[in-house]
Simulated assay, not measured.
Amino acid sequence: MSSPGPTLQQTEVADITLTVTAVLITSLRLCIRVRQKRLGIDDAWVALGMVFDFLLLISDCLYLQDYERYPQNTRIALYYMIAQFFYGVVWSSKLSMLFTIVRLTIPGKFRRFLMCAVGTFGAIWALLFSQLWWICETQPNWKSQPHPQCDLGRRVAITQMITDVLADFFLIVAPFFLIYKVRLSRSQKVRILSVFSTSAITTIVSLTHAYYIFAGGGLKEVMAAIVEASMSLIVANLSVVVAFIFRLSSDDDSPSNPTPIITFGGQHRTRMAATRVAVETTTIVLEDLSESRLRSMKTSDDDEIILHNNRERKQTKEWC
């Protein structure tokens, strides 16, 4: 016996709660990057995803609650807006994560490979955008329903499952190649990889969403789409927000309890004393390597382990 689906009120509450959470986390990430003067392409994509998520919230509320006051054509338009804004949130978030990996990678073959992956992600988004119109416009009977919802069927569900799983798998595996030959402790590597491995969360949610598409849609499908969109945006921000939290935690620690911290695209501003004898805090800074060449030429007293450090020239050459 199948479990009863969520009510309209429950769906709206979940939508508002998750969207507000995702928007707040994204705003925090952007504030961090502005404060560090490190805004990049990955931040632009996540900001676009936030805009899509906010528009998705408005469209959902109009579609779910106030649809009876609108003419039928407006209801159909709202459905199409929801479906396309959903794709906008999910794939803007994935592109943001991919560009975060790109900015941490030195110029070379691997970065060119990542840029090819960017083009592939964009092509997948265009395919899903177009597929929705192909499916829904070839079976127009759904447009006459009081609460119109297109039966996307197997083709859309299978396409979403394959593309989401492959894209998330790539976003999990790519960082392994990024830090494979970096001289970090095992715990430090685990910490970095665990941040990027949160893409697995969106994989689980996307599979659930695809299942409800198979099962015939309804409010369960709408709820699963809302959760997937918001979780995709939240996960895309974790690499920056978690690094910021670790930095604050490290700043609060006493000298007798040093804690290694990891920052993604940030700047380490702490100056060491000139007569310091012992190193008590190690900072692992994953910087935007497109700007690394100028920084690597100047002398610094900071105790930093940087992926592009000239002291690791042999390792860097192996990456290229």
Rank of each mutant, 00 (worst) to 15 (best):
T7D: 06
E12C: 09
D15Q: 07
L18I: 02
T21D: 03
A22C: 04
L30P: 09
R33P: 09
D42G: 10
D43Y: 13
A47S: 15
C61V: 12
Y63T: 04
P71C: 00
T74A: 10
I82R: 13
A83V: 08
V90A: 07
S92V: 06
F99L: 11
T105C: 08
F113K: 03
C116S: 06
A117S: 12
F121R: 04
S130H: 05
C136E: 09
E137H: 14
P140W: 08
K143V: 01
P146W: 03
Q149C: 02
R154I: 10
I158D: 07
T159H: 08
L166Y: 05
A167T: 12
V173D: 02
A174V: 12
P175R: 01
K181W: 01
K181I: 02
S194L: 15
S194N: 13
V195F: 13
V195I: 15
F196T: 09
S197N: 09
S199L: 01
T202Q: 12
T202D: 06
T203N: 03
I204H: 10
V205N: 08
A210R: 07
A210W: 06
I213P: 07
I213R: 08
I213Q: 13
F214N: 09
V222D: 04
A224R: 02
E228T: 08
E228I: 00
E228H: 09
V235M: 10
N237I: 02
V242R: 14
R247E: 09
P260A: 10
M272H: 04
V279T: 13
E287F: 03
R295A: 10
D302K: 11
E304M: 02
I306W: 04
K314M: 01
Q315K: 00
